[in-house]
Write a protein that binds this DNA or RNA. Sequence first.
DNA 1: GGCCCTCCTTGATCGGCGTCAATGTGCTTG
DNA 2: CAAGCACATTGACGCCGATCAAGGAGGGCC
Lengths: 253, 253
Amino acid sequence: MRPHPDQNTGLRPADSKANDPIACDSCPVREISVCAMLPREQRKIIANRSHNRKANKGDVLALEGDRVTHVASVTSGVVKMTKTLSDGRQQIVGLAFASDVVGRPFADDTAVRIEAATDATLCSFEKSHFEQLLREHPAFESLLLKVKLDELDAAKDWMLLLGRKSALEKVASFLAMLADRQLAPDGTRMPKAAAVTVELPLSRAEIADYLGLTLETVSRQFSKLKDAGVIVLDDGRAVTVPDRQKLAALAGN
Amino acid sequence: MRPHPDQNTGLRPADSKANDPIACDSCPVREISVCAMLPREQRKIIANRSHNRKANKGDVLALEGDRVTHVASVTSGVVKMTKTLSDGRQQIVGLAFASDVVGRPFADDTAVRIEAATDATLCSFEKSHFEQLLREHPAFESLLLKVKLDELDAAKDWMLLLGRKSALEKVASFLAMLADRQLAPDGTRMPKAAAVTVELPLSRAEIADYLGLTLETVSRQFSKLKDAGVIVLDDGRAVTVPDRQKLAALAGN
DNA sequence: GGCCCTCCTTGATCGGCGTCAATGTGCTTG
DNA sequence: CAAGCACATTGACGCCGATCAAGGAGGGCC
């Protein structure tokens, strides 16, 4: 066997263009995002149409009612989507973690304010380009549909939480969600029994806005969970959960 | 002109197969459902794969956790989707009116209980057939995506309501939603100023489950709105809204 | 008609969570 | 280190909506 530039396929130089490095190759969510299951062919097209965007904590990516100009996939950090009543009452209506899609294709303007909850990076597309990709690549559209159906299921879980759970159950549910989503350093999911340390991406006030509570009530529930030994407050922003079963039991469901 | 079977197109008999009557032709939601924008070609395929299903008020179409066997479009009536905590607390997480889609493609089992809130009819597909249609007809999949994105926006509105609105605002919002959705007898949307009479598809208890309240609180808010002259209670199940602006003002937003 | 059943309304009371306020903690900046 | 700030905790109190309870209104059925 003679050496060749591509160890996987052994393509001749004439074909090497197909395996030129593309931006996606170094994308931290290339294996799990909506792009993951696309053939390299199509990913190349995507790479050419996207650009990286860095956002600092607190940066506003879009205001409620803004014209939609971009659609993006979160590649690191957490992005929050909020809605606000005229008198200032606020509700977080969605969190986008790495690999989630933010922005609203097929609508003129966005119904939510989009803001970086932590420092974040995004793989951003102009809305018209994104829509064109969807039109031209049914596999891509199909993946987005599946992702959005999952989001819809998650939204329904959240409606149950907002409408029917007690303050303690809400906070426990929130922590349980973060703990379950937490990955081991090697990228695999944590075993169910293991203790997990969660870095909270939100302040108490933001957690309150996510759970339909006040920040004081959230703080009190944290204290209650701490006193009960269900969580350990490493510091304000980090929580370790020694026994996720116990936490889950307090979450209701 | 000689008489012919199809008054609209006057096709020659040799072509008549393309315009043979299909079930969709008499479908009450053929103009607004997810099928509406498909060419007749594809609708014919759909018609062959679907069957009508009648459900009486209270009929359960699927239980929480059931295997998903069918996906359907509501053709008349109202279908509710609910989630329940282990101790019985319940939340309605979605209402499907005529033309809405119920059932969850691309998932093994349903996360919600599906039940007829009123007598209803559905255009039902076996799940595997429905998914096949999506795979084979990108235009169909594209429409479903747009519909589900709209549903997701609506879910976010509801999260704001559940998390942040007062009991009065919740009830006003609910009635405003029904009033806005109400169509004039000729099928056009009502002008904003006109009085509207709304037939409530839900009992007080169901409205409570939709709004995250108790039935007593819902009843009290109805009375409060009646006393304020914002609504007229024709009977328990019918409400007329003389001035939708006034109702909208009480809904918060 | 009389009975029952379901649904709705209204009242009285209670408690969970919001509100207001003070204090604590860690980080930044001079 | 002190001062200032953002954020979190804790306490006291009050209100909105839940809970408990009674009674009305309509509709079906014998």
